[in-house]
């Protein structure tokens, strides 16, 4: 990244003198614009990073964070020492993988469709409606799912399945349904949001491209695949890279509250975040929760650097850095 930076710096811009002085003169207003943001990020994000040491300490409140004893990697042990380590890692990665793919494809599809609609009234209406789930908290979503799936009071078991002549299903104890249920809930809740983001970039595309294409007799389909998608690729890549960076994290509410913390489902619903929560709810150990966070971040970081490297190889334009 430093190499890249220096390359840019060295490359003389056409029509500009290459000297440092004129560079500074040209760019100081831009740096001035950045200043508040940089300061905020240092305070809000970089300074607290000293907290990483908590992961390597046995925190004792009488001694304070800095006075507590160092314990090396002991706080990390619980993440690997258990036989559940395989299950939680597998679940976390598989779900996130599936989420990245379904989420991206569906959101792009809906964004394109939304953009196609001619009547503005409908565009607005649909947009508002599909954002609704995003505004609800996971706790509420979990109650809604429960209202659908419950044995005693659920809409499916009480109304729909009897109509179809199917016996009621004990949803909360059958593991086989949950990968699908969780994927559906996740997409249902998140697509509206992602769709709005993609829509904003689609709207930002210069209409001249389409006008030219239409003159050339390109079909809608061709326009979508050769204009829209390539032009929003940078945003898609950014969103995907970010999702990859967070592949070891998961939405706690989705995996804990939506299955109602149902024990029999743990095989397919336990992810790293829920494992840590269940284990630490009584221990309340700061060091161990920091360790989990550090582990998740580190894996994500490595993966992002790798993926970005791959993107750079394929198309330098679209790489994030």
């Amino acid at each position: 990244m430093e190499q890249a930076a220096s390359k840019i710096r060295i490359r003389p811009r056409p029509g500009k003198a290459g000297s440092r002085w004129s560079m500074a003169k040209k760019f100081w207003p831009l740096y001035l614009l950045m200043l508040p943001g940089v300061v905020y990020m240092i305070i809000n994000n970089y300074l607290p990073m000293f907290g990483i040491i908590i992961a390597f300490k046995d925190i004792n409140f009488a001694k304070g964070i800095f006075g507590s004893d160092w314990v090396g990697f002991k706080n990390f042990e619980y993440l690997f020492k258990t036989e559940d380590a395989y299950i939680i890692t597998r679940n976390t990665i598989l779900y996130n993988g599936a989420f990245i793919v379904t989420h991206t494809v569906l959101a792009i599809a809906f964004a394109i469709l939304l953009n196609e609609i001619r009547k503005k009234f409908f565009t607005r209406l649909y947009q508002s409606i599909i954002l609704l789930p995003y505004l609800m908290s996971m706790v509420i979503v979990s109650y809604l799912v429960y209202a659908l799936l419950s044995m005693e009071t659920g809409f499916l078991n009480k109304t729909v399945l009897p109509l179809l002549g199917i016996e009621s299903i004990s949803w909360y104890t059958e593991t086989k349904y949950w990968p699908a249920i969780l994927t559906i809930v996740h997409n249902w809740k998140g697509i509206g949001f992602l769709c709005v983001i993609y829509l904003a970039s689609i709207i930002g595309i210069d209409p001249e491209y389409y006008e030219a294409a239409t003159l050339d007799g390109a079909s809608k389909r061709q326009q979508i695949f050769s204009i829209t998608i390539p032009l929003i690729a940078p945003v898609v890549i950014f969103m995907t890279l970010l999702a990859i960076g967070r592949i070891f994290y998961s939405d706690f509410g989705l995996f804990y509250q939506v299955p109602m913390n149902s024990g029999p489902l743990l095989e397919v619903t336990n992810v790293i975040d829920t494992y840590v929560y269940r284990g630490l709810i009584f221990l309340g150990d700061l060091g161990m929760s920091s360790a989990a966070g550090a582990y998740q971040s580190l894996v994500g970081f490595v993966l992002v650097i790798l993926s970005n490297y791959v993107v750079r190889r394929l198309s330098k334009e679209n790489a994030l850095f």
Partner: peptide, 11 residues
Amino acid sequence: TLLFNGGLVPA
């Protein structure tokens, strides 16, 4: 900053 954070206590 999107990948690493120091956690709640230091903040």
